[in-house]
Design a protein around this nucleic acid. Sequence first.
DNA 1: ATAGCTGCAAATGCTTTGCAAGGCC
DNA 2: GGCCTTGCAAAGCATTTGCAGCTAT
Lengths: 130, 130
Amino acid sequence: MNDIKQFLRSNALRPTKQRIVIAGYLFDGTDKHVTAESLSTELAKRKHIISLATIYNTLHDFYENGLLKKLTLSADRVYFDTNTDDHHHFYSEKEQFLIDINKNIKVNGLPKTPKNKKINKIEVIVHLDK
Amino acid sequence: MNDIKQFLRSNALRPTKQRIVIAGYLFDGTDKHVTAESLSTELAKRKHIISLATIYNTLHDFYENGLLKKLTLSADRVYFDTNTDDHHHFYSEKEQFLIDINKNIKVNGLPKTPKNKKINKIEVIVHLDK
DNA sequence: ATAGCTGCAAATGCTTTGCAAGGCC
DNA sequence: GGCCTTGCAAAGCATTTGCAGCTAT
């Protein structure tokens, strides 16, 4: 709890009640994939009612401070990943689940990067069943 | 023109005025990436005013018949790709552009597929500048 | 005290849908 | 003629925003 406050402060985030609850849930040591809504539901189960607007704000605050990774896999829902290391994903659109691939993946045979551009990241998504 | 009608018919799509215009634009031999809106704008320049609802319907009809590939890269816009071969992309979110990677890319080091699942496709997105 | 945060309600923006009118076979 | 398609206007949804009240420092 004080750890969490510390943690937030060290990321230039004021440790408010809501942020402490959200960070406490997200950064409990287990990697998680959440959407604003799944997070809201999950917190509600734990009797923590936080307005959706705040959840959206907080996820973006965390994201902008590098505490979360953002994943756009389907058009109608943005996922946030608590694992911020470089890694890739198995994804099932049908079942809406997401599994981290933590092994080292190598992408070979890329053509040269377009002029005056830099590669920011390479994202590999392994789509499952159709 | 009759080619286009033929083409639509052979894909179980009734060749209506609107579909002929849209297919004529999309499948002119050059690979294209469009969104519903960019397509609408592009057609409007050519004096073809087609309602957005119809454009959405048509893009999905084409997609469902395998004439287009669908790409979800940013949450607020779905792209359709006239190149339906297996291929990958360079993508700049900032500049909103998309370039096909037609070279053969190899992804090495994938872990084994989750139990009872099959790989549908592997998608590699090379994100540019940030 | 005051700059920052919360949360409601309303707005936004892409996409879908209901449905009446029109077009293709 | 009958079924499919179009397109308007309205609905749907995830997400964002304005703003008044509250809170951390």
